[in-house]
Design a protein around this nucleic acid. Structure first.
Lengths: 231, 231
DNA sequence: GCAAAAGTGTTAACTTTACACCCATGT
DNA sequence: ACATGGGTGTAAAGTTAACACTTTTGC
């Protein structure tokens, strides 16, 4: 079927999700392969139309649940893309969302309604995407890079228990620059937001590192009192 | 006419603009009085449906041009509000925009299509607004307060030529805290983004202050090279 | 015993903060 | 001559940046 033979849809809105994960020292995003025209066989951001009886935030949450079978995911609205000709089937604006997930905890649903398959791509290696999704991805990536410096969102990408080196590596990968180990530890511990656990790494062929977890409720309390996280 | 007798519209989208101005030492926003149901006679953010043949950014620009007859206005997308029941006439999501204007330069259009009148309100004194517009205003105000600290957008609210005291007062009003005069001047001049003019204030009953203007092209150049404005 | 990453302090450079008086102008 | 806001410098406190070696563990 040719693109210009596709049926026109009425004016409507969709959501698309830029889902970041961190695995094996690399920052990744989750893409789906489109099973249908338009852009059949292209990779695209997971997305869907918003149902009449759901909030747009709810639609984004639904996409994430369908893909990952989990619902405790960091999710925030990114930006709305509404150029007249962004969608070949009509005047469709899309509200883009930005999600951070703990890769290990989430098993990808092998078959979802809107896609043939879902796959993780390194952000350095994202192919040409359907629609204006490359533009959406770029904007999300920039948002992650700036937001991680003033909000403690990096923890959303790590397992519940993590080492300081893992955390540092996450920052180095996202900010694309090396960070001094001692200065990083001093700074991040000075916030008092990390809880040192009575537990160490296992099965590593070197000195095992202490594990930490992020104290989210403490962060929320401090934030109310005007505390500002600033890396 | 009762609200529940209003005709239902099909699924659609609108834009609403939070337009900030600074006048007589006060931060203001521009509101319109609604001439029609729903929320007839309530004050509301200027807004309108997006036409089928215009980008959403274009629709926001159109609202501003209709209200102010000018088009060189700072405008950025704020957030999209899409709760199912936010609009009594149907499933209408709205993309909110955030604008900063130089009050003196803009003459308000006394009569625009969508309103009976337009008026400036001090942000400390905003009445209950139609729809979810109070929520939109709150979000815009917070965005202004945080953004002004890391982007030189304050200048968009001042006349072309301004004194350092006017600039300082603008920051004090927006950030809701006093700032030390000497430290402020040292900091703001250290960026090298202000041009000292060969001109002084007129008609003031005290020593006349030097006038400055903001060097926008220099800021754009520095920004490309990684410079970051941080108050 | 060696490879690999964990863990740890000090100093110099820089930035931020606190603070008070004289100057120019109009009335 | 007085009222009003304009304009200016310094020192102490705090923060950031640069830098190298010892420890633990598995193989």
């Amino acid at each position: 079927m040719e693109i210009n033979e596709l049926p026109k849809l009425h004016s409507d809105f969709s959501v698309d999700c830029v889902i970041f994960g961190f695995d094996k020292g690399e920052l990744k995003i989750l893409l789906i392969e489109r099973a249908e025209e338009p852009f059949k066989n292209f990779m695209a951001l997971p997305g869907n139309f918003v149902y009449d009886n759901e909030d747009i935030d709810g639609a984004a949450g639904r996409i994430l649940r369908e893909l990952t079978s989990l619902s405790d995911i960091y999710l925030e609205q990114l930006y709305t893309f509404g150029e007249v000709n962004r969608h070949p089937q009509g005047r469709i604006i899309t509200v883009a969302y930005f999600a951070l997930i703990k890769v290990k905890k989430h098993i990808l649903n092998p078959q979802v309604a809107f896609a043939r398959k879902a796959e993780w791509y390194s952000v350095a290696d994202v192919p040409a995407l359907a629609f204006d999704h490359s533009k959406i991805f770029e904007k999300a990536y920039k948002r992650l890079q700036s937001k991680i410096r003033y909000q403690p969102i990096g923890f959303e990408l790590l397992p519940e228990k993590f080492t300081l080196s893992q955390l540092q590596q996450l920052y180095e990968v996202i900010l694309e620059k090396p960070i001094d180990k001692r200065n990083f530890r001093k700074k991040i511990l000075s916030f008092g937001l990390l809880v040192e656990l009575d537990e160490k790494q296992k099965n590593v062929s070197h000195r095992a590192a202490k594990l930490y977890k992020f104290n989210k409720s403490r962060y929320n309390n401090l934030k109310k009192m005007g505390f500002s996280f600033e890396l």
